[in-house]
Nucleic acid binder design. Structure first.
Lengths: 152, 152
DNA sequence: GTGCTTGCAAATGCTTTGCACGGCC
DNA sequence: GGCCGTGCAAAGCATTTGCAAGCAC
């Protein structure tokens, strides 16, 4: 598991990828952000300073994913986000359906659910995604209406 | 909660939408399918016979969602699928990372997890999504390699 | 120097929109 | 008959690809 910026570069090198200013910048931006980011969000943070192309961001994210350093996350709105892998990074998202605030949920305690499902279906369970949706304290206080609906 | 084709039409009417051959066809296709479907999948099942436009499928799905009769589901690959609402339709998906087979998981037993998260974050939890990924029995038998990786 | 990376431009694929015709109620 | 729904074509948007120039090693 990768711990820091330096480790990430080392891992990239180890996998045979070259270290370029663009890749450095993208990794640093992702490291400075707790939450997952879309390619466009990364682009908007990099744009003014270093003039990195959006195409490069797509390709770099692809590279980082191949190297196992980030992982993909499809948001409710259908866009693709990416998140840097960190130690103990197994976590899940809780999204406010009113204002869009995203916070992380820690341990999910789904091990016994996985075991039951595995027994029922014969699948070997490798991983899972869990996302919750609700109304954050701020929006509750302001009595804002939720846009949310039940999931299937 | 809606139970059958006839109920769906009645509900559509009740909401002020008109019943057209295209809408009938799309609803019937979705009713005949257990799993969620993308607009294109629906289109491919309807194309030859009735000559329904893909645009109409997008608009009909939008209408059905507004009427609360279907709900959206963003797949791992980033595409949008839709699923008809059925009684006891709270369920989750288990996807084989090798062959793409999708099966449903029944009850998830996440109530106590939701409660804990709610206490920790102050959110009022409205709903959640849970999807698992693994290797199905068939692919295990054939010793096929998983493409899967851990999630974040 | 070699080969991977980048940036530009253009292509692609899914989804949405404008507009006129047609069909449901 | 009024108005919503449909189909066509075209636009919109995120993402991917081809290709020549540039840079890391």
């Amino acid at each position: 598991m990768v711990y820091s910026y330096k480790d990430i570069l080392a891992e990239l090198r180890r996998e045979g990828y070259k270290i370029t200013p663009q890749r450095r910048a993208i990794i640093q931006i992702m490291e400075a952000t707790e939450s997952h980011m879309t390619p466009l969000e990364i682009y908007s943070r990099t744009n003014s300073s270093s003039g990195i192309s959006l195409v490069t961001i797509y390709r770099t994210l692809d590279t980082l994913e191949k190297a196992g350093l980030i992982c993909q996350f499809n948001t409710q709105s259908g866009h693709t986000s990416y998140l840097l892998r960190r130690p103990r990074s197994h976590h899940h998202h809780l999204v406010c359906s009113v204002c869009g605030l995203v916070v992380n949920i820690g341990e999910c305690g789904l091990e016994e659910v996985e075991e039951r499902v595995s027994k029922d279906t014969g699948f070997k369970i490798v991983s899972h995604t869990l996302d919750m949706s609700g109304v954050c304290p701020e929006c509750q206080k302001n009595n804002r209406q939720t846009l949310g609906r039940d999931f299937c």
